[in-house]
Design a protein around this nucleic acid. Structure first.
Length: 107
DNA sequence: TATTTGACCAAGA
DNA sequence: ATCTTGGCCAAAT
């Protein structure tokens, strides 16, 4: 069962993310049971299975867009297309769009 | 096998 | 608010 690499497991997790939601590199790594937040991003750059994998839905923990193979500018445009409020290269109310939903109530 | 690399994160000399 | 530093992990070279 563990025939896949860490990167492959990341792709599967990203596929679970619904449109309009985003996640952070740290969350993905934690969901896989590791702290390799850096290895997650590395997996995208090295082998971005794109466009099969929505790697554009992964942002930084600070709500920043983070990096992208095609440029942060394009990544922001894609997220905007998903309905995410991006201001000056940053996502506002990130906790409201993060995935998986952490807080029980976020009013 | 050892070294280097990053689409990161958190804290602050 | 910004920048710097250190740490962290897996995959590539």
């Amino acid at each position: 069962m563990s025939g896949q690499t860490f990167a492959d497991r990341c792709y599967q997790f990203l596929l679970k993310i619904p449109a309009g939601k985003v996640t952070t590199y740290k969350i993905v790594a934690a969901a896989l049971g590791s702290k390799a937040y850096r290895a997650v991003g590395q997996a995208m750059k090295r082998n971005p299975n794109a466009p099969e994998v929505p790697c554009h839905r992964v942002v930084n923990s600070d709500g920043k867009i983070g990096g992208y193979r095609g440029g942060t500018r394009m990544k922001a445009a894609l997220l905007k297309s998903e309905g995410l409020p991006i201001k000056r290269g940053r996502i506002e109310n990130l906790a409201n769009y993060i995935w998986p939903p952490a807080a029980k109530r976020q009013f």
